[in-house]
Nucleic acid binder design. Structure first.
Lengths: 225, 225
DNA sequence: AAAAATATTAAACACTTGTTTAAATTAAAC
DNA sequence: GTTTAATTTAAACAAGTGTTTAATATTTTT
């Protein structure tokens, strides 16, 4: 009588995303959900809320995704499926380690800033034990990203450019945490730094904030105390 | 017939907290609310939920705080009222600038880590426009904290120890953001760094994470490129 | 064009939400 | 000890929650 189309990304044995076959209607729902989840949180957003904005019937969410929880899962898959590849391509480029780090930072910040919604959601919907099940795929992504960073830094250490007493897993928190904390306090910094328009705000992130993070990580990796 | 005791902190013209006169019952409710809000978010926590854990009647929240929203306001007041003083005392200590910075970082991390709940709540319940009203008092706190940091860094710059091309308002995001991002991804790092018990986790924050942040900020402030 | 599969709908489901009420209990004041 | 005030309670309130159902409309396949 009816078909429940899960449409999740398929993974092979090496967990490389093969395809994410969401149809137009699903994508429409996903993008509305992304906006609302980011604005008001997962629990703060109701299905009726999503349906109204997306101009669909409330039953369509269950029909296309099964449940609200699985809508969130699908959203993560939809948004994180190609970051891995981008990072792996960066590794292969012919650049000095510090340049790779700078590019990695710029890539992270730009990517997160233009997919603001989903990363904000990831940043704090997945802390509670309740959602730890969904966390599996996300955890794999994070491990892969860390591996890429590790490769670059170890390369720099071998060349004698980077110091060896840094705790590599803590560098990601510094990069991403700086961005998130800035963005989480958007109204505060808009006011403090006179970033009256959305353009000014985004530009500040793309230039000053990115530069600050690059400067910080470079100093951390190179400075001899 | 009944008295509605708001019990908010009183501010004088200089917005210095005079006293926060919550009674025992209110504090009991506040601390349960803090735990639950931090665990499951504001919207994810129901009054019945709080009442059950705190072993009180559900009407008591409205009775003592007026509403769920005002319970959150009270919680913020209850938890943030003495940080300002601690920072101002640090400024007066007779220490080298870099030592002051290190102490400020340790103070921040320790304080946030032992009041984990409320800061986690502040970190992401106050981003949505919806709660911007409550944001006023919190914004004042942040401005004060920034002022303290600025004083220390400018002192170091005058002494010729610190470089002058750092963007001071972005240092707080690096300090706090690093901690928060680490803490937000607790399950991930517990697994990655083998922090099996709560003690091991807390100890890692108190030693390694704090050291990493101090090392990072020191490098940023001192390193000449 | 007929049949089958898919998409969409409004209505109902059972349940949870924050808040209020009015009665019952306990504590304080006189 | 009686009266007044403060606290606590169970019950009810209207509104909102995620999900399911069965009927209808649309599209695709034969």
């Amino acid at each position: 009588m009816f078909k429940l189309n899960t449409c999740l990304v398929l993974f092979n044995e090496n967990s490389i995303p093969l395809k994410s076959n969401f149809n137009d209607k699903q994508i429409q729902i996903l993008e509305v959900a992304e906006t609302l989840f980011a604005e008001k949180g997962f629990d703060g957003t109701s299905i009726r809320n999503i349906a109204k904005v997306a101009k669909i019937n409330i039953a369509m969410v269950s029909y296309y995704f099964g449940s609200k929880e699985r809508l969130l899962e699908s959203l993560i898959v939809y948004r994180t499926s190609d970051l891995k590849n981008q990072l792996e391509n960066l590794l292969l480029e012919d650049l000095e380690p510090i340049e790779k780090i700078n590019k990695l930072i710029a890539l992270y910040i730009n990517r997160i800033n233009s997919n603001r919604g989903i990363y904000r959601i990831l940043h704090y919907e997945f802390t509670s034990k309740k959602r730890e099940q969904n966390l599996q795929a996300f955890s794999e992504l994070k491990k892969g990203n860390l591996k890429s960073l590790e490769t670059i830094i170890e390369e720099g250490q071998k060349k004698g450019i980077f110091r060896k007493d840094v705790i590599i897993p803590l560098i990601t928190p510094t990069i991403l945490g700086t961005f998130f904390h800035f963005h989480m306090n958007k109204p505060f910094f808009e006011n403090l730094l006179n970033l009256k328009t959305e353009d000014l705000y985004n530009n500040y992130i793309k230039t000053n904030l990115t530069k600050h993070i690059q400067q910080t990580i470079k100093a951390l990796l190179i400075y001899e105390s």
